[in-house]
Design a protein around this nucleic acid. Structure first.
Lengths: 335, 335
DNA sequence: TATATCTGTGCAATCGTTGCCGGCAACGAT
DNA sequence: ATCGTTGCCGGCAACGATTGCACAGATATA
């Protein structure tokens, strides 16, 4: 059995009380230098580390942060996680990552799990499927600090971080227009997601600016964010089967971009459709068909969300003023 | 402040002792049906969940499993994590993921952190940089259950899961040979990794079988697994600058494959070098230059590793017999 | 009626750590 | 000589949940 050393062991060995040992280890001013030295040396020798579980119980907090994303395999999210960790670790927190796989059920289970595990706060990007938010609202009402990033819940009064989705979508769409295309389809994420709406607005704005009429048939939503087998495939096929085939597609997410490219490779070998979309992939430059892309500052978003969360956690008084931070995207062309 | 309900609250409200409440909630046979019902209903009503931290302290275990991989952004690892989670959740464990980013320091910190957090066991794939194993050996000696997957530590006596790296490497190399090339370079991972050695053996076996002489200059090691900026770039440049330029490259990992393709795109626009390598990427079919690839059963590896670990954790007696499971890879051609 | 058995409940200890109170000795000031 | 102060340390309780043991009351048996 794995049995770590405790301060009791030290106390017994050194013939001291546990409280004395405890204080000596924390450098309490009420302990003589001599005793301190003895305790510290012995603790070092037997490789003592204090039990954070016991501490969590006593302090009613765990110095850990829960993260919920749809999947870690998505580069946008893994970069955001790196950003979260960079701040969390530096401030003495550790992280517990869990994946919703864009499923509502798993989001509920996971957030419950995290709250039970006594995380001090949660950073979350909503699952594509989620339409009911009571599981989150309940915890928030109980006082659990929550920060949203990327896919935010507009209606909840807390800190939020997103990128400038509207601008990014506008840039991508306008780029397509600049290439001379006019029939620009839009492959979108689940309808109820904040990012879906924002990106669609950017797309519409670009069309409007250039006097291109909007056709609702050119917009396809993927209710599972592309996680469901065949979802993107079907959407693309439907677009290709339209009476007037689109000559470009603006894709709303990384996940969808991949599915889109795969489907096009299959159904449109002529490769005469221009594509631009959101992507943080590191292989985006190697893809064929090529993909011009909007990149979000994922790492930075993670950092900021974490700073916000730790502020909430460590605030002595209930926070009333909340902030929504919007970061700029960048656009990159791949001919 | 976030303050969950405790059994004390229930006890007070119902005028019972905490022990009665506790037993009623666990369905203890010694409690009258009537009392049980009252307690259960009230607990339900006020949304009681037991505090797992308190339980961990008492039971000396946390029902959580630590995972250490180099990075979650790597598809092989994220698939393995999905496999780990599938078993872990079904058996009532939850997971704590941490990333070494192929750095020795972070591996040490993370494993320490996990052990402190009282995980019941650890599943680990070694960082590329790691050459000293005492941080792991120490915990293992203390009785912490550890299972290796992918990048294993041969010398440690515990359960291990790998794929058949030698066979996979052989398949890839032989495929290249079958395409008529003879000057096959090998872009390898850090020298000390188990997978590096195994994959090199497969490469050598294929060369030998087809009577192709081995040239040490054709093998390039990446000591940081491709995590360090410019590492792969340099290696590829060196290969291209050799007096006799290779006409094919066998690449040992996903991470390296990407770097390799990028470098080749830059330095070898003629695109006259054939590439085959290990990859679990979901976009591998969309890449240009194209990449024939060896795929590992990552999900399955995660599942098996977790079953092994939970066996170790839940075993009543110290386990003496350890197993090394080797799973088959598959090879896929991309012309 | 006295004793044994059984049912339902409470008490107290436990896990590791820390906060708080209080005790003891040595010291200086009065 | 007495009092107050200070330095150093031990003991107790508490965080939340579980559990062995004890005990009260009811019922059954001798």
């Amino acid at each position: 059995m794995f049995k770590p050393v405790t301060i009791k062991d030290i106390a017994k060995a050194l013939n001291l009380s546990t409280s004395t040992v405890s204080r000596a280890l924390r450098g309490g001013y009420e302990i003589s230098e001599e005793t301190k030295k003895i305790v510290l040396e012995y603790a070092e020798k037997i490789n003592f580390t204090r039990n954070p579980i016991a501490l969590s119980l006593k302090e009613r907090r765990s110095y850990s942060i829960g993260i919920i994303v749809c999947e870690v395999a998505n580069v946008f999210f893994s970069q955001a996680i790196d950003g979260i960790e960079s701040i969390a670790y530096s401030k003495g927190y550790h992280t517990i990552i869990s994946q919703s796989h864009d499923q509502y059920e798993r989001e509920v289970t996971n957030i419950q799990h995290l709250a039970n595990r006594s995380v001090d706060g949660i950073i979350i990007s909503l699952a594509a499927e989620t339409k009911d938010y009571s599981h989150i609202e309940k915890l928030h009402a109980q006082g659990l600090p929550i920060v949203f990033f990327d896919r935010i819940l507009e209606s909840m009064n807390t800190h939020k971080v997103t990128s400038n989705n509207t601008q990014g979508a506008f840039d991508a769409t306008e780029y397509l227009i600049s290439k001379g295309v006019k029939k620009i389809a839009h492959l979108a994420n689940a309808k109820q997601l904040s990012i879906t709406e924002q990106r669609k607005i950017g797309y519409l704005n670009a069309l409007e600016k250039h006097n291109i009429p909007f056709d609702e048939n050119y917009v396809k939503y993927c209710e599972h964010g592309g996680s469901k087998k065949g979802e993107v495939d079907t959407a693309i096929k439907e677009l290709l089967d339209l009476p007037v085939k689109p000559d470009a597609i603006f894709v709303a997410s990384d996940r969808l971009s991949i599915g889109c490219l795969e489907a096009l490779k299959k159904y449109n070998p002529k490769n005469d459709i221009l594509i631009a979309g959101f992507s943080n992939s590191d292989v985006v430059n190697l893809l064929k068909p090529s993909l011009s892309y909007v990149r979000q500052p994922a790492f930075e978003m993670g950092r900021i969300a974490t700073e916000m969360l730790i502020n909430l956690i460590e605030s002595k008084y209930p926070v009333e003023e909340f902030e929504t931070k919007i970061l700029d995207t960048t656009f990159h062309i791949n001919e």
